[in-house]
């Protein structure tokens, strides 16, 4: 599996003409863990979702190349896209409170994803759902399968979401701030779970996050986005030695517990960062 993105542009219509939210992003991704970091509105989520062509209806998508394992995502028909979505690439979103269907049980939602790509009977799908819940380390998977999302905690909801996206054995997992809505202790558990599953199944991962220290030790590579463009790309371990003033600014405004308290640095923006 290889994802190729070349000069990706996503624009939205506005009264004063098209507004470009993503402006010429390029990267390739193999079987590795790629982090996309950047502030809100920098285009991280749109970039990642474009790979599955899961954009809002009004979005205008263009690129020199946008390929998922050789499939041209820009021109693929809806059926081909549906085989990628869920089947070969999964998407875990921020808050399971909103991303799970409130009137379907957890088990039914997982079983639905399983059946959509593998067929089989209801009973088989249900058994698969319980098995998947066990794989995401839920203790009483049979009981949890019968619960509705409002009866689940945030961490459990996110495990259900992950189980659902793993149902058809995808090759790529896009995790869009998967831990932002969770408690700190649960965050660590969910990340460990994702790491473990990615490792064991040999999947590619795109992790979208605000958390620079986290991605620097969790991922292999980091893209730093600003105003719809990639301003810096580096190996995750080398993030601390990043060159771009925006990345430096982000790193410098992090408080460090072990150091003496001093006034935190403020990010000073330079209009040239946003310019092409």
């Amino acid at each position: 599996m290889e994802v190729v993105v070349q000069n990706l542009r996503i624009a939205f219509p506005s009264p004063s003409g098209p507004l470009e939210a993503v402006r010429g992003v390029s990267f390739t991704l193999g079987q590795e863990k790629l982090a996309i970091v950047g502030e809100s509105g920098s285009g991280k989520s749109l970039t990642a979702r474009a790979i599955m062509r899961l954009l809002p209806r009004a979005a205008m998508l263009s690129a020199d190349a946008l390929r998922f394992d050789g499939i041209d995502v820009l021109n693929a028909d809806e059926n081909a896209m549906r085989r990628i979505r869920g089947g070969r690439a999964g998407l875990v979103m921020q808050d399971p409170k909103y991303s799970l269907n409130p009137v379907m049980t957890a088990g039914a939602q997982i079983a639905e994803a399983w059946r959509a790509h593998r067929g089989g009977t209801r009973r088989q799908a249900r058994e698969a759902a319980v098995d998947l819940l066990a794989q995401v380390q839920i203790r009483d998977p049979g009981a949890v399968a019968d619960r509705y999302p409002h009866q689940l905690s945030g961490g459990m909801g996110q495990r259900v979401m992950i189980a659902m996206m793993l149902a058809p054995d995808p090759e790529l997992l896009i995790a869009d701030e998967p831990t932002s809505a969770l408690d700190a202790t649960v965050q660590a558990e969910i990340l460990r779970l994702i790491e473990d599953l990615v490792q064991r199944r040999g999947m590619g991962l795109i992790l979208i996050s605000h958390d620079l220290p986290l991605v620097s030790h969790f991922c292999d590579r980091v893209l730093v986005m600003y105003a719809g463009r990639v301003v810096e790309e580096c190996r995750a371990g080398e993030l601390a030695r990043a060159q771009h003033p925006y990345t430096r600014g982000l790193l410098e405004c992090l408080p460090i517990l072990s150091e003496k308290r001093r006034r935190l640095a403020v990010l000073r923006r330079d209009p040239s960062w946003a310019a092409a």
Binding site: M52, L54, M81, R82, R83, I84, R85, G86, G87, G90, L91, M93, D95, Y98, S99, L100, N101, P102, E112, A113, A116, H117, M161, M164, M165, P168
Partner: peptide
């Protein structure tokens, strides 16, 4: 948001 999830599942 759950509609995005449903789309992401390939339904």
């Amino acid at each position: 948001e759950f509609i995005v999830t449903a789309r992401a599942k390939g339904l």
